[in-house]
Amino acid sequence: MNMRQQLEQYKPYNPQEEKDQKIILRYMDTFDNLFTRENEFAHFTASAWLVNEEHTKVLMAYHNIYNSWSWVGGHADGDMDLLYVALKEAKEETGLENVRPISEEIYSIEILGVPAHVKKGKHVATHVHLNVTYLLEASESELTRIKPDENSDIGWFELERAIEVSTEPEMKVVYQKLNEKLGVHMI
Rank of each mutant, 00 (worst) to 15 (best):
Y13M: 00
Y13P: 00
N14C: 09
P15M: 06
E17D: 04
E17I: 00
E17H: 01
E18C: 06
E18D: 01
E18M: 11
K19N: 13
D20K: 01
Q21F: 05
I23Q: 05
I23F: 05
I24F: 05
I24H: 01
R26E: 12
R26W: 06
Y27V: 11
M28E: 10
M28D: 12
D29M: 11
D29W: 09
D29P: 08
D29I: 10
D29L: 13
T30L: 13
T30P: 03
T30Q: 15
F31G: 12
F31C: 14
D32H: 15
N33V: 10
L34S: 10
L34D: 12
F35N: 05
F35E: 07
F35W: 09
F35D: 06
E38Y: 06
N39T: 14
N39I: 07
N39K: 03
E40K: 15
F41V: 12
A42G: 03
A42K: 09
A42H: 06
A42N: 08
A42Y: 13
A42W: 04
H43E: 02
F44N: 02
F44L: 01
F44P: 00
A46G: 04
S47R: 04
A48Q: 02
W49A: 01
W49M: 05
V51I: 02
V51L: 04
N52F: 10
E53K: 07
E54I: 10
T56K: 09
V58A: 13
M60G: 05
M60I: 00
Y62G: 00
H63I: 09
H63E: 15
I65S: 10
Y66S: 09
Y66M: 02
N67W: 00
S70V: 09
S70C: 07
W71K: 02
W71T: 08
W71D: 05
V72L: 12
V72E: 02
G73L: 08
G74T: 04
H75L: 11
A76W: 03
A76C: 08
D77C: 14
